[in-house]
């Protein structure tokens, strides 16, 4: 087991370095000088040379590369070209917004997707149930999250005026209150702020959650189908259990183990989804930060955002692999 964990970590490290190298070199082939992008075409050549030197772009590529890797390990991505503040601070500020969105949409996806997957697996011979559920799954897979988001905005924000059009509420304030212990002093203010955050979160979480639910329902359907054909299910039936007990006590628990493996895929899809969702709902977050940074040619910021995305995905996959080994002892690892 320990050996397996070590092996997985050893595989993850070069992957991380490789992925970061791809980001670095992709950013360096970018057409256009960052300094020109920042200072405009009219900048004097001295000013440009100065800027290049300040940003360290005049050093040999190998040195820049090594420097980038070493700094990334310490979460030091340099300063934003535009605003001049450390990229790390932006990421730290944006991360909670994206985290909350991913979590909320994961809850929506699980609540919608898992039951649908189970029912469609159990009732697969009943076309009246199976067909609508399959159609739902296909629609969810095919509907772009940004379109669904816009439709939700049109209906619930513009027509019915129930949810806000943009923003994310005062999440920073909520976190600060938790950090400083003011939660206990002003519980009412705290609840109001949390309510506001949730109010802003509802539509984005529904949009992203619904598109993710389709994937979850498909995967849980195939997980359920696999479990239901196992010998112990037949044994349970042979012992005379009613179907409900077979499903809830025997099948469901075993089905959750394979579902665990999809968390890795899920996080990858969800993070990609946040790029689009945050843009549609004009919500602060890592995804929107990335898109804005690319638009503004703010390379350190874009590089930092992409690196953090990649790190999250690789680390989550690593953790899931390990969890899987812990949860299911039947599996032996080479």
């Amino acid at each position: 087991m320990l050996q397996y964990v070590l092996r997985r970590i050893l595989i993850a490290v070069p992957m991380l370095i490789g992925a970061m190298s791809i980001v670095f070199f992709a950013m360096r082939v970018l057409p256009g000088d960052p300094c020109v992008a920042m200072m405009g075409d009219q900048a004097t050549s001295e000013a440009l040379a100065d800027c290049t030197k300040n940003l360290g772009l005049n050093r040999p590529l190998a040195v820049q590369y090594a420097d980038y890797l070493w700094r990334s390990v310490r979460f030091d991505f340099g300063n934003s070209f535009r605003q001049g503040y450390p990229v790390r601070d932006y990421i730290a500020r944006m991360f909670p917004h994206t985290f909350v969105l991913v979590m909320a949409s994961a809850i929506v996806a699980a609540l919608v997707g898992i039951p649908i997957g189970i029912v469609s697996a159990l009732k697969r011979r009943n076309p009246l149930i199976d067909y609508p559920l399959r159609i739902f799954a296909l629609l969810g897979l095919s509907m772009p999250v940004f379109w669904l988001g816009i439709l939700l905005l049109i209906v619930f924000s513009l027509r019915l005026n129930i949810f806000p059009l943009i923003g994310a509420g005062d999440l920073d304030g909520v976190l600060a209150m938790i950090g400083s212990g003011e939660v206990f002093l002003y519980p009412r203010d705290f609840l109001v702020a949390v309510g506001d955050v949730l109010h802003h979160l509802t539509l984005p979480a529904l949009a992203l959650g619904f598109t993710l639910a389709a994937t979850v329902s498909r995967l849980s359907r195939s997980a359920m189908l696999e479990v239901i054909s196992q010998d112990y299910i037949r044994t349970a039936r042979a012992k005379g259990h009613v179907e409900r007990v077979v499903v809830y006590k025997h099948a469901l628990r075993n089905m959750l183990v394979p579902l665990l493996t999809i968390i890795g895929i899920f996080v990858a899809i969800a993070l990609t989804g946040t790029v689009l969702t945050e843009t549609v709902f004009t919500r602060p977050g890592l995804g929107k930060m990335l898109v804005d940074a690319i638009g503004a040619r703010d390379y350190p910021l874009a590089q930092g955002a992409i690196t953090v995305f990649t790190m999250i995905i690789i680390v989550v996959n690593l953790v899931v692999d390990m969890l899987y080994a812990v949860v299911d002892p039947r599996i032996t690892y080479r």
Partner: peptide
Amino acid sequence: LMAFPTLL
């Protein structure tokens, strides 16, 4: 390359 989601 698989470490990156397709869109990213």
